[in-house]
């Protein structure tokens, strides 16, 4: 398993478009991808979990990935959250 901390950059947090895009991205990997936010662990492949996580701009997350493509997945997810709005 690999882990990495990240701070949410997107102004609208991980709701709306940034949230759906994150889930779409997560679905392209085989590994299990979780976001640890305020002590709860969110499945990044489940849009409802991501939305209900109420992840806002400035929040700290820990990305946890486990599976055959974990390194690739964590890099992609990290840079997506790190990038924020275009």
């Amino acid at each position: 398993m690999v882990r990495k901390d990240v701070v949410v950059k997107s102004v609208s947090g991980l709701h709306a478009r940034p949230g759906s895009n994150l889930v779409e991205l997560a679905l392209t990997f085989k590994s299990d991808i979780r976001l640890v936010h305020n002590g709860s662990s969110i499945n990044a492949k489940e849009i409802l979990e991501v939305m209900m996580g109420n992840i806002n701009c400035g929040d700290k997350l820990t990305i946890e990935v486990e599976g055959e493509d974990e390194q690739k997945a964590i890099n992609a997810i990290y840079s997506y959250i790190e990038k924020g709005e275009e």
Binding site: R17, S20, K45, E46, I47, L48, E49
Partner: peptide, 16 residues
């Protein structure tokens, strides 16, 4: 497009 995409992702949820 975005909204349809959101609904589609919602329905792809395994836990749902």
């Amino acid at each position: 497009k975005q909204l349809c995409n959101f609904y589609k992702i919602l329905l792809s949820s395994n836990s749902l």
